[in-house]
Design a protein around this nucleic acid. Structure first.
Lengths: 218, 218
DNA sequence: GTCATCATGTAAGCCGTTACATGATTGC
DNA sequence: GCAATCATGTAACGGCTTACATGATGAC
């Protein structure tokens, strides 16, 4: 799941590890940000496999940081950089190691997005965050797979409630709420699928498969 | 979390590992049953620490298995048992190792139930399954802690939605549904807390702290 | 007598965490 | 200069999974 999230974020823009971790934490389904002890080795592995590569720290298309006019700081960093080693390696102007996704990385991202179902709810949330990289058909398949998982779960809850031996009131109440939540999730998913289908049909007649988003990428 | 679930289940009745695993899987919040490679070492550790102990396989107060009148089987098992070693060790009539909780184990269970908050949703579900072992005050504290966590989460969702950069429609839609779910969870929890408080008050006036269970003393 | 299931364990390996070590940058 | 924060890593450790090994029981 971490690989998926890392590649997904880097597909949007180049980032260095420290920043990447913050974004990872903001992603829905990634409640707690992963630790550096996990992130850096993961990045190293991805780089080794050629899925990401370190790039020079040219200003990103959409600079996320305030970049608060610290010209003096930039210059000092530049001097420091030259002091250490002049231009060798792909480290940015501040010693930050900025990563970008490669073409094999993008391919891998799509693979991970369409990979066989997983039961984990958080995994679905992460996939959803990057599913705009999929084709309409693949996206629909992802949604339908999720739908089947939720239906499976709801049925299990229903059958389980009757077969269950002596439940406490607390647990019974919880299970009711749980079923309710699953039902609501299912309704939401159905709306999502319906919207997707109609936009796919619209795209068909228009000759393009663009989601209903103005100013979409590309 | 596994320790909590194991101790909680054993507090209800004596069980052997194989059966325990099945029950663990049925517990809400324990979507996938843990593996044997995790369970047996855990049980060994708990036994070493004196929190559970192996007991002889006397018939449980509430026999869960069909116990389908296999008298011949029982006898054969008894013979097999005698063949191997006569009465040494606390193994039941079939080689099954049936565990029961000890007094220190019960104490540990209560410790785990009231232990400081965790963000994991599944952990709360497991605690809820066994919270009837807590005093009304402790239970209320558990609920309130959970409530604060949910409120924290909802506020974060609200602030996050505005600060978030370029969200895809998919993610935006998901976040809306997520907030909705959190709100509904919160409402449910509030009902639970209200019910708990009224039953506590009722118990107070009656001189006892009994939950609202029919058949309880006045 | 053989196969599925019940039942208990061990070993190797993956993946993630905490703790530690190091150094640059910036504000005061 | 000093502290806080940014930034990158390594090492030790823990927990869980898969795969493997073993054997009893019960159905046919």
């Amino acid at each position: 799941m971490n690989d998926l999230a890392i590649l997904g974020l880097l597909d949007g823009q180049d980032l260095h590890g420290y920043e990447l971790r913050k974004r990872l934490g903001e992603l829905p389904g990634m409640r707690a940000a992963i630790s550096f002890g996990s992130l850096y080795p993961a990045l190293a592995r991805l780089e080794r496999d050629g899925l990401v590569k370190a790039v020079t720290n040219r200003t990103s298309p959409t600079p996320p940081a305030p970049m608060s006019g610290s010209l003096a700081g930039e210059l000092a960093a530049f001097r420091a950089h030259r002091r250490r080693n002049s231009g060798k390696e792909s480290r940015g102007s501040r010693g930050k190691k900025v990563y970008g996704i490669t073409e094999p990385g993008r391919q891998r991202l799509r693979e991970l997005l369409v990979a066989p179902e997983v039961v984990d709810d958080r995994e679905f949330a992460v996939r959803l965050a990057f599913c705009h990289r999929l084709s309409p058909a693949e996206r629909l398949a992802l949604f339908r797979e999720r739908r089947e998982e939720l239906i499976r779960r709801r049925d299990q809850q229903r059958s389980g409630r009757t077969s269950q031996r002596h439940l406490t009131t607390y647990l019974r109440s919880f299970l009711e709420r749980d079923t309710e939540a699953t039902t609501a999730d299912l309704a939401w998913l159905d709306r999502l699928i319906a919207a997707e289908q109609s936009s796919a049909t619209a795209g068909e007649s228009a000759g393009e498969s663009a989601p209903s988003k103005p100013g979409g990428e590309r």
